[in-house]
Every structure is written in structure tokens, then in C-alpha cells.
Amino acid sequence: MIFYIVRRLLQLIPVFLVMSIVVFMFLHLVPGDPVDAILGNEATEEAKASLRARLGLDQPLIVQYFMWAGRVLTGDLGNSIVNGGSVLDTILQKAGVTIFLAIGSVLLSVIIAVIGGTIASANKGTWIDLSVLGAALVGVSIPSFWLAILLMMTFAVNWQLLPSIGYTAPAEDFTEFVRHLILPVVTLGAIMAGALSRLTRSEMIDQLSQDYIVTARAKGLSKFEIVYKHALRNALIPIVTFAGLELGTVLGSAIVIERIFSLPGLGQLIVESIFLRDYPMVQGTILFLSLIFVLINLLVDISYTLLDPEIRLGGEQRND
């Protein structure tokens, strides 16, 4: 098991390398010169040249990369071109909102999907199954921004139960924090639950047709024990894998949702920084999000060792 985890960690090294090159190159490939952005179009050539030299933009690309990578490794993501503040500090300050949003919505989607998917699979072909499938189809098909606006109009505007936009830090007022996050979390969670409950259902149907289920029935176990203990335990790996992927993609969806609900998270930060051509900020935020994405996948891989004894004990010999 230790070997498995160490191997997974070593495999991350090339991933990080490629990731950093892509993030670095990305800024040098998009049209628009950061120097123009900072100084404006009317600046003199000398002024531009001196700024280029100060930012290291006159160096060959490869040198620039290593200078940048070296700084990144020490935790220095540079400073904002717009306001001069530390990129890392800004990111860390805004990351909380996005992380709460992501974890909350993925948890919600897993809860909905596991309950819906298992109930559907245990009642395959009945109206219960069809209702779950129908609801899942709606979840998969609805665009997130539309659902967001719909929920906002219903719960915030018409019924005035929840705030429509904005954010309160949990340390400040926890109740308000929860109230502000409910609508965005439900929006993302409901949409992700669609695909995940379909996956759970098909995975559970597959498991419920296995031989060991018949053995469990012959032992006298109840339907509940068979579905929620024996079958679900075997269906968990694909469910966890998919939930991990969702946690990654939700970071992307957050850009839209944070915009709609005016949440001061990383998604908002990226959008604003792009408009302002704040290159170090965009670069730093994307790097940070990619890092989180990779770490989530690492966690999913490690969770396999808990979920599957065959992976956990992979090195052990079969006792034939």
C-alpha cells in the first residue's frame, strides 16, 4: 500500500512539469502584450523596454520559464500588475469560497445520487426507477446558469427565503455564510447529481446481478443489507472516481456560478483578472486550480486502497 502511494506521488512529478509549462506558455501565446496592458498604448519604446527588462520579458523563453518556475517553487507567484498585491495572498484569500462551494455541491450530489441511484437499481423497471431516471435526465440537461437564475427568482426574489447574491465569511457569521451558499451549492449539486445518479444506478444494477448477491440472499440477508452493504460496497470505486472528477470540473463551473451569485471566489478572480489583463494573477490562479485538480485525483487514487482490498494488498501472493 505504501508502495502504491509512493508510486502515485512519483507519477505526479512529470504531471506537474507539463502542467507548469502549459500554464507558463499559455500566457505567452495569447494575443496582447502585458507591457502594453500595463503602460497603455501611448507609452514610449524606452519605457516599454525598461519595463520588459524589469519583468524579465526580454530574456529567452527558456530562461524566463526557469526563473518563473524557480520562484513558483519557493511559493512566490509574483505580484498583481494591477494593484501590486501578492498573487498568492489574493488567491488564498479567495480560495475558501470556491472550496466550500465545490465540496458542498459535490457532497450534495453524492448524497442525492447514491440514494436515488440505489433506490432506482433496487426497483429496476418500476415507476420509481423511471422517476429517478427522469429526474436525472432533467439534471443532466439543464444549463447551470439557467437553474441558478430560476432558483434565485424562486427562493430569493419571490419567496425571499434566502439572499440572492453576495457572501459572508464563516468566521464572521456562520448562519449567513450557510444561507448565502445554499443556492449556489444546490445549483451545482443538483446538476452534478444527474450524471452521478445514472452512473450509480447502472453500477448498482450490474453489482446486483452478480453471483455473490445470490449467496447473500441464500444466507437470509435482507434486501436493505444486500443493496446497501454488499452491492454498494462494490459499486463505490466508480462512484468515488466520478465524484473526484466532478470535484475537478466544479472548479470550472464555479466561474459561471460565482459570477451569477456574486461570490468572491477564484472563478470571479480569474474572470476579473482576464478583463484587466492581470497576467501574473491569471497565471497564478490557473496554476493553483490545476494543482488542486491534481491533488484531488491523487486523493481519489489513494482512496482506492481503502475501497479495494485487492489494490491495498496488491503485492501479496495468492494462497493457491
Binding site: D211, A216, A218, G220, L307
Partner: peptide
């Protein structure tokens, strides 16, 4: 009670 043909698949692999 009943026992089955396939010992390979008749036990739950996760327990």
C-alpha cells in the same frame, strides 16, 4: 440454505 457452482464469484470480493 444453498451453495453454488462458481466459487470464484459467489463470495463478495470486498469483505
Amino acid at each position: 440454505t444453498m451453495i453454488f457452482q462458481e466459487p470464484m464469484t459467489s463470495l463478495n470480493p470486498k469483505f
